[in-house]
């Protein structure tokens, strides 16, 4: 049965819906809520954007960040030689 839920509950379910164990009735309640609440609808879109940006931002930094200093490389090399 469809149950009316509030925004606090809906925003929590938006995180939990990624979880395959979330029961169908909870998914249905969320679906209904998103149809009647424009703020949670907006939040649901923004929450996806945030996840997307978090990944993209880490990927961009992993590709374009600064190099490891030569001094650090030499220190590491020495430790590897000493330990090996």
């Amino acid at each position: 049965m469809l149950r009316l839920i509030n925004c606090r509950h809906a925003t929590l379910l938006l995180e939990q819906r990624q979880d395959p164990t979330l029961p169908r009735r909870e998914r249905a309640s969320l679906w209904l809520h998103l149809h009647i609440c424009r703020y949670c609808k907006r939040y649901s879109q923004q929450t996806l954007l945030i996840a997307e940006w978090a990944r993209a931002s880490a990927t961009a930094r992993a590709q374009a960040g600064p190099a490891l200093s030569e001094a650090a490389k030499e220190r590491m090399r020495e430790r590897l030689v000493a330990a090996g």
Binding site: A58, T59, A60, R61, A62, Q63, A64, G65, P66, A67, L68, A72, K73, E74, M76, R77, L80, V81, G84
Partner: peptide, 20 residues
């Protein structure tokens, strides 16, 4: 050859670590 790792993979691993 472990002694070659810092020169060969250091930058890439460091950038990845720094992104986290």
């Amino acid at each position: 050859v472990p002694a070659e790792w810092p020169a060969r993979f250091g930058d890439e691993l460091y950038r990845f670590a720094l992104s986290r």
